[in-house]
Write a protein that binds this DNA or RNA. Sequence first.
DNA 1: AATGAATGAGCCTTCATTCAT
DNA 2: CATGAATGAAGGCTCATTCAT
Lengths: 222, 222, 222, 222
Amino acid sequence: MALERAADRALQRDGFRGRIDKRQAILQAAWTVFSRDGYSHATIEAIAMEARVAKTTIYNHFGDKETLLRHAVAADAERVAARNIAAIERLVPDRTRLRAALEELGYQLLRCHCDEQSWQLRRILVAEVGRLPDLLDIADQRAMSRIVGVLADRFARLTIAGLLTTGDPLLAAEQFSALLNGPADARSRLGTRRISDRELHALARDAVSTFLQAFGPPAREA
Amino acid sequence: MALERAADRALQRDGFRGRIDKRQAILQAAWTVFSRDGYSHATIEAIAMEARVAKTTIYNHFGDKETLLRHAVAADAERVAARNIAAIERLVPDRTRLRAALEELGYQLLRCHCDEQSWQLRRILVAEVGRLPDLLDIADQRAMSRIVGVLADRFARLTIAGLLTTGDPLLAAEQFSALLNGPADARSRLGTRRISDRELHALARDAVSTFLQAFGPPAREA
Amino acid sequence: MALERAADRALQRDGFRGRIDKRQAILQAAWTVFSRDGYSHATIEAIAMEARVAKTTIYNHFGDKETLLRHAVAADAERVAARNIAAIERLVPDRTRLRAALEELGYQLLRCHCDEQSWQLRRILVAEVGRLPDLLDIADQRAMSRIVGVLADRFARLTIAGLLTTGDPLLAAEQFSALLNGPADARSRLGTRRISDRELHALARDAVSTFLQAFGPPAREA
Amino acid sequence: MALERAADRALQRDGFRGRIDKRQAILQAAWTVFSRDGYSHATIEAIAMEARVAKTTIYNHFGDKETLLRHAVAADAERVAARNIAAIERLVPDRTRLRAALEELGYQLLRCHCDEQSWQLRRILVAEVGRLPDLLDIADQRAMSRIVGVLADRFARLTIAGLLTTGDPLLAAEQFSALLNGPADARSRLGTRRISDRELHALARDAVSTFLQAFGPPAREA
DNA sequence: AATGAATGAGCCTTCATTCAT
DNA sequence: CATGAATGAAGGCTCATTCAT
């Protein structure tokens, strides 16, 4: 809400040093610091320095640390969602190379999932969900739910097109995600270890393989 | 190591400045507080009060907050692992009701997974893995790895018995877990919402269903 | 360096959470407390109270206790040096009453040396030089060295004027100081006991007497 | 006082590991730690470890930290005094090489004065004299006063023997010490820097030179 | 709206000291 | 007497937050 107010004056004058918009700078800096240090260890001062802004300015814009976190999380969730959805929407229903297409999609989703930024978002969510439960709402409605939703849509269309056999596209979408992310989480040691591209491809292949045996096209694919 | 020293005097009277088993009391209290408040928000003082002990006593036993966390995590991981493994080992290879048995196993694992204690352990791990990477090692080697390992063993036996078709039992175990936990995580809103028993059963059924289509017995079971 | 920033607003009103010149107030309070209690026994809280300032303000200005000590020592060394040098510069080369003039100088230097403030500075230096060796540099270059240097200059001029016979004016200055301070230190029990003015005069006389026999004017004074 | 009680049983039985006497071990350890870390930074625990003794044992023997310090200081003062006095007593009244003998004495006294242990004793005295004034009495009556006293005696004898001209041997002794130690203190940066033997000899020569011009034999020695 | 200075609450940790055996 | 465990009282330092300009 307050997030937009600033956008309007994003182009206004502003004395000295060229600057995009303080509010934006703060949000970026906040995310940088929050995701680097975790919410509790992050300090407003660090964020202020990163944003080249006085501490008080942050308070003027966001009121307090929690609110700042909420805004930062919202912004990041948006970014994360955008990347995931873009990947999903590249999935074309092509009868002849369904498996390849799904594998490519799986790979792309895994890349998003294993990205540092994604991990950091999840880390903060998990860490703070006890104290700040609404954080999850924010992130969920901007990223998680939307992503699975879009994926389910795709699967529904593929089902209609006779390429998949999903009684419940949403369930299929959830399981597709789970088959991708579950093993990846284990292998990346909660995002601590980088997973090579080759490994990612392998993970995608395994997931798709299982997925297709359960939800593959009606007749063939025994 | 030093963890056992205390056990010896576990039976003493309580005396004035009693001693029963302070170490154990501290460990329990630590876990209570850590998992309730998160590592950073937890204070040694709160733990001391919870354990009915002087703050310094904690330092005498564990040195510092981090070390205390490590010990507490280790202890809890042990508990979590025990419960999971017990559930797995109850899985009997019975040809006629394989599906029912797997569903029961899935349900039990889900109950473990969705248990508050489990969630708290995971929360702390995820939250602090950046700053304290060895925490993951501790938990992984005491719980996560062991659990998947035992599960894989089971699947291997079932494969040999001709009840499953798993080329790579470890992969099967990972995917089985993923199919269970992934959807559960989403539905429980990262452990924030309790999932009803009925829901858990449903989740188990869905997971097993997909699982069996991929890894079911060779001939039958279309 | 940062020491001056505050000077600029030295004239402001006092306001509610006044500001007059906190930095200066802190420095003074710090010296009061440090020299009263010694570095280790002094607490930041005591200093804060003495300066009527919040503890944090001290940290904002000086970063930590050590740095605060360094600044306080520097400030005090400056004061001590000023007094000593002023005394030395009052020494006029007068042929007829050289002895009287030297005795007066000796007396003045002893007064400086035996002053509480001087003793406190020395106490802290000696006590902490092990842990904080650079303290000595600070004090030395602001007080000790300068003082002996100025004294040596004076003696050099007197030598040129034929009033003294100092092959090495610096040595003469050092020995002059030593003859004054050494006995004074013993008599004052490391600054614990006040020495009466009569005693100080006597000490000066003894020192000058010995000094002149070694460095007195060329011809006479066998 | 309590110091002697233990000495009596120094040879008694004592269970286990061969040991000289716990009390003695504690005293040594105390001095080691006190002089290494300074009184405030020294911890009873460190002393206990150094002495291979339980903390409580220290309390059994000495009651509290201050008392322990007093005893340790007393013991060390004794040691320091012994070394100094030994040096002084080696001074023989020899007409033909008085200067050489004095220089040798000066050199020996400087070595004592500049010794680490001496500095540490002085450091602690100076640091704590405010809070624990009786420390000075202890050290003074066991070391400082005795040393100057013995030196004054020597000078008195030399005066009677016609080798020196000291109206007040005590003054002469004090000034002799001052001429030695004053410059040495400056050059050693309060005991921080080691002074080479050559330098020490030079310092002794300078001191003796001035000293003899003031207190040399009656007629000769211009 | 932006800033520099100041604040108060609190946290981790240390240490001299005391119990109970 | 010696010991291991436990304690209470601080102390240094950090941080979110607020004034006053």
